[in-house]
């Protein structure tokens, strides 16, 4: 009999291995992120003044969309080959297994986004003193996107065309993260303190970390029924 902790670890390892075997798919959300951001200078203006002003918002909106697009793969293959059903039937808590899947998903989609963001910040002339804030908000914010998004994915995984519906369900729930994260980067660029926003993002992260696995597990069970 495996303990809860080792079940969590086994699932994390399994999902990471699966992700590693499909490396090319992992790059797609990142490419999307880069392309969307590079569209803004083309669409608005290449002037550094203008881009500087919109950089935090643009990077964050693009991160939001990239995170949402990558979500679809979270439960899809497990649902199709029946492993999700086995997870639900296992004596381990489904919330814990779901959390392991979300963590693996964040490690392969959220983390690269954080590493990539400073370069895109440079492309959009984001001031250097805002760079660390950008990284900090992404580090605190992208896990929230994965955790909250997992609920939406779990609800729509049984549907054939869940993609557009997923964005309708999930994007409104992402708004607080967007407000605080983009707000913090904006403030940092102007040289103000951003502790308040970061604390708030931390609070949102701990809230979603504690509550969303249960909602996701419930949603998975509904989708399987």
């Amino acid at each position: 009999m495996v303990s809860d902790f080792s079940a969590f670890y086994i699932f994390l390892k399994r999902d990471l291995t699966l992700a590693y075997r499909h490396r090319s798919e992992l790059a797609n959300p990142l490419l999307f992120f880069v392309i969307v951001i590079s569209l803004f200078p083309l669409g608005i203006s290449p002037e550094s003044k203008v881009l500087q002003g919109i950089a935090p918002g643009v990077i964050w909106v693009a991160a939001l969309l990239a995170a949402m697009l990558s979500l679809d793969s979270l439960f899809r293959s497990d649902f199709e080959d029946g492993s999700l059903e086995q997870m639900a039937l296992s004596p381990r808590s489904l919330s814990l297994l779901v959390l392991a899947k979300v963590l693996a998903h964040w490690l392969v989609t959220g983390l690269p986004l954080i590493l990539l963001a400073p370069f895109l910040g440079v492309l959009l002339f984001l001031p250097e003193n805002a760079m660390w804030t950008l990284i900090a908000t992404l580090a605190l914010g992208t896990p929230i996107l994965s955790l909250v998004g997992a609920i939406g994915v779990a609800l729509t995984v049984g549907l054939r065309r869940g993609g557009v519906l997923l964005s309708l369900l999930v994007l409104p729930l992402y708004i607080p993260v967007l407000i605080f994260a983009a707000g913090a980067v904006n403030e940092a660029a102007r040289g103000f303190s951003v502790a308040g926003q970061l604390y708030f993002l931390g609070a949102l992260l701990s809230l979603s970390l504690t509550l969303s696995p249960f909602a996701t597990a419930a949603a998975v069970r509904i989708s399987l029924s």
């Binding site: 609920i151 609800l155 369900l169 409104p172 407000i179 809230l207 909602a215």
Partner: peptide, 18 residues
Amino acid sequence: AVLALVGVVNIPIIHYSV
């Protein structure tokens, strides 16, 4: 129902953040 409950948790957060 699950979505509505998630929304209810979020409404005050959305409200105050906005």
